[in-house]
Design a protein around this nucleic acid. Structure first.
Length: 656
DNA sequence: GTAGGGTTAG
């Protein structure tokens, strides 16, 4: 766009120019006259060589062309000669400052539009408010807001959205109340912004009622915000209700509901909704695909994830989507694909690096995880809280005590990150696994934050491995004092008592379990065959091929026993004896799933299992020997980490 | 004319 000619300039800027009210003594409501007055006043009867029209014309042109350096230079001239342009021109300049991240220049515009007693319109002050919000200068925004004489719904909504997005929820809700007291009615913009600031169901329901009362529930922005907040609070039924009420829909509302289920670990429903969305004629965008990948990740659906990958290529430059893809491959145990994706990513952020480091660590490749951490530092990307957790996890799962201690002790100094509860947890795990139980207890005592049930459960796990029953009893009691519903800990404590013939304690504990209503989560394993998911639980007989699976499993156990397999009954957490004990091990869900996988997948194809509980020692031995006997890779993902079984060995090095 | 919704790592 060329600078506009002086002639055209006249016709364009005529209605827009204004000069200070105090200087003209004319009402600001009729700007058309100011220009004439200003020009006459500026040029005056004398023979001034300054052409004020050119100055304003110049400024207006550069603002509308979004040429920041030239516009700022022109602004200096405007200021010097006490000239003002129209509000839209300033708004353009402010937008330009926002897009360039030009804080200093933005403040300069602010100063100019308020100089010499000039009172900008509410519209223009709102634009300045938005600028401070976009620069994350909320104090400046609030200061300007407080000075406003005439605040409209946009002014209030800008501030509410600012606090809501900064998770200053209390401030956002407080502003809403002040807005109502001021007699300004919230609109769909206000509600869609303030919903995420809800601090609980009670104020969420109140806001929802207000929205229905004023008839704003049909706005798609409000609807997607409602779905999102109900999902965040874990009320997926309410989210689905709001979703199903939808008459016209748009893609974001679909994304909200799919994302809601994907984030709440209900991958099944997320996938169902995705299929419904496609049948309704919508095309997935990067946000949809990110949520779908998350669902694949939680369900460990590698084959489906690969299909989604085909669609991801269309949005190849989307960092968030690429990170989700990377995580999917890591969590599905396909490190080769993950590494390939990671290498191809043109832009990587701290989440990309952390995902890959954690992926290596969880899959048993601790050396690679630490090498990648070094590469990350060389690349100039700063590690954060979660990256360090991944590094400590790599050390603890490899038994590298010294490395772990080095990273833990130097994290504050090297990376400026204070160790949090989870970092202490990793260190308790590291020391505990390595048999340094006393040191682990000492570390818990030194924690700057209060240890929680997870911390004590970590110590309990180490006590069990190293058979320190006294400390195990102490740790178990600590766990139950913080989480009285932890079924696993009750059973473990009961076993400790049983092993030491403390039958009275066993009975008391079981009575307590009955009173509290403890139910042990049944072990469940899943396997994906031809994009169909098959689920198995202990002793499960519901599968259509049940007889063939049990027959094959019995045969395999018999053949493995000939090779020297001895079932390890130390891991049975039930009150069983002898053969019964062995049988309860024989039909663990992962064994059923592995055998079904071997029966269903082509020869040589990796058997991939996902399970909800940690793998037991017996199933671990079983999988190692079976992988060797059948010359087949088996990958099992438990809630904490992965086991890649090949040639009679596991990637965890039997250390989990 | 200025303000609003959905997506990634522990």
């Amino acid at each position: 766009m060329k600078p506009i000619s002086r002639f055209k300039c006249y016709s364009i800027i005529l209605p827009a120019i204004s000069v200070p009210l105090s200087l003209l003594g004319i009402s600001l409501k009729r700007p058309r006259f100011y220009f004439v007055a200003a020009t006459e006043w500026r040029t005056g009867p004398s023979t001034s060589s300054i052409n004020y029209l050119d100055i304003v014309n110049d400024f207006t042109t550069w603002c509308h062309q979004r040429d920041l350096p030239k516009a700022m230079k022109a602004l200096d001239s405007m200021q010097k000669h006490r000239l003002w342009a129209d509000s839209v021109t300033y708004a353009e300049l402010i937008k330009c400052c926002i897009s360039h991240g030009a804080i200093r220049q933005g403040k300069r515009v602010h100063q100019h539009v308020f100089s010499n007693g000039y009172e900008p319109k509410t519209f223009l002050i709102n634009t300045l408010l938005n600028m401070y919000v976009k620069f994350n200068l909320l104090d400046e925004a609030q200061f300007l807001f407080d000075q406003m004489l005439d605040r409209n719904v946009v002014s209030w909504t800008t501030m509410i959205a600012a606090y809501s997005n900064s998770e200053l929820n209390y401030k956002a809700l407080e502003m809403l109340i002040m807005m109502l007291r001021d007699g300004v009615r919230p609109n769909m913009y206000t509600y869609s912004s303030v919903l995420r600031a809800c601090e609980g169901f009670s104020n969420l329901k109140q806001l929802h009622c207000c929205i229905i009362k004023v008839g704003l529930e049909f706005d798609v922005f409000v609807r997607s915000a409602l779905i999102d907040i109900y999902s965040r609070w874990g009320d997926l039924q309410a989210a689905l209700y709001v979703f199903n009420e939808m008459v016209t829909s748009d893609l974001v509302v679909w994304n909200s509901i799919i994302g809601g289920f994907a984030q709440n670990s209900d991958g099944d429903e997320a996938m169902n909704l995705f299929i419904r969305m496609k049948r309704s004629g919508f095309w997935a965008d990067q946000s949809t695909l990110t949520s779908v990948l998350r669902a694949c990740t939680s369900l460990a659906l590698l084959e489906l994830g690969r299909q989604v990958h085909v669609h991801v290529i269309k949005f190849n430059r989307d960092l968030v989507l690429n990170n989700a893809l990377l995580d999917m491959y890591c969590k599905c145990g396909s490190l080769k694909d993950a590494n390939y994706t990671f290498t191809l990513m043109a832009v990587k952020d701290v989440i990309s690096w952390s995902t890959m480091i954690i992926g290596f660590a969880q899959n048993g490749y601790s050396r690679k995880a630490l090498d990648l951490f070094e590469a990350m530092k060389s690349s100039g990307t700063k590690p954060n809280y979660i990256t360090i957790l991944g590094v400590l996890f790599a050390c603890s799962h490899a038994g590298w005590v010294k490395d772990g201690q080095y990273y833990f002790e130097s994290m504050k100094m090297l990376f400026g990150i204070d160790p949090g509860r989870e970092h202490y947890g990793c260190m308790v795990d590291l020391l505990g696994r390595a048999g340094k139980l006393e040191e682990a207890v000492k570390l818990i005592q030194q924690m700057k934050c209060e240890p929680d049930a997870v911390t004590w459960r970590t110590l309990l796990g180490a006590c069990r491995v190293h058979r320190n029953m006294d400390l195990a009893e102490y740790a178990a009691k600590k766990v139950l004092s913080l989480d009285r519903n932890d079924a696993g800990t009750y059973i473990l404590l009961s076993n400790i008592y049983a092993n030491t013939q403390r039958w009275e304690d066993v009975e008391n504990l079981r009575r307590l379990m009955r009173d509290v209503g403890i139910k042990k989560e049944p072990g469940c394993s899943w396997i994906e065959i031809n994009k169909q998911v098959h689920a198995f639980i202990l002793g499960d007989k519901s599968h259509p091929q049940v007889n063939a699976i049990y027959g094959e499993l019995n045969q395999i156990i018999w053949r493995l026993k000939e090779e020297g397999y001895v079932p390890d009954t130390n891991f049975v957490l039930q009150d069983l004896e002898g053969e019964q004990m062995e049988n309860s091990l024989a039909y663990h869900s992962e064994k059923l799933a592995i055998v079904f996988g071997m029966m269903s997948l082509p020869k040589g194809k990796t058997v991939r299992i996902r399970k909800n509980l940690r793998i037991c020692g017996d199933c671990h031995v079983f999988a190692k020997l079976l992988a060797k006997m059948e010359n087949r890779s088996i990958v099992i993902r438990d809630p904490i980490r992965y086991h890649h079984f090949q040639d009679g060995a596991c990637s965890c090095g039997d250390y989990w």
